[in-house]
Amino acid sequence: MTPVTFDDTTHEFLEAVENMSHAGLNRCWHCLACSGGCPFSRDMDVLPNAVIRMIQFGMKAQVLGCSTIWLCVGCNTCSVECPNAVDIAAIMDALRQTAIREGAPIAEPGILEFHNQVVDSISRHGRTHKLEIMMRYKLAERDLFSDIDLGLRMLSKRKLDLLPSKVSDKKAVQALFRLGGELS
């Protein structure tokens, strides 16, 4: 592993993450409560508290490139476990959005693709249309058959609506996308 060198710019990444997330990440004392409580830490390449440590060390490329920031579903279990009320889910949001904005390599492109399909569905209807999201996601991933039995069972149980539930004021929805850009 490459040794970490500290210089005048090491803290910049930490400050950027802190400004985006307001998470109080320097309160972390690395007790590992978040990592122990996280239901998905066994599938992550870097434990949640280690992500915080790496931010403190300025290891930007490694942090933005890890799978952890994508496997985090934002369930906030870590925040409940944390004795210092560090908003770890907010840190993960900030890291994902930094990775997207700066074009960093994405460790879990399928997960990002799914999120993008959800956002696209909202831009079309103002609400999420699950069947459309699933179909477009499967097409984008070139994986049409892995869940076909499940899809058919859900359709037969009328769990998936063929037509979307929609917002009638389409212009208002488009305006929200522009407003969102200004609120980031």
Partner: peptide, 25 residues
């Protein structure tokens, strides 16, 4: 009347500004 998506976990994950705009409406 005419409510929209709350901001959903996906939107919140990848675009906090948009999630806030959706919830605001």
């Amino acid at each position: 009347k005419d409510w929209n998506c709350c901001g959903s976990s996906s939107t919140h994950s990848v675009n906090s500004g948009l999630a806030l705009a959706l919830a605001s409406r």
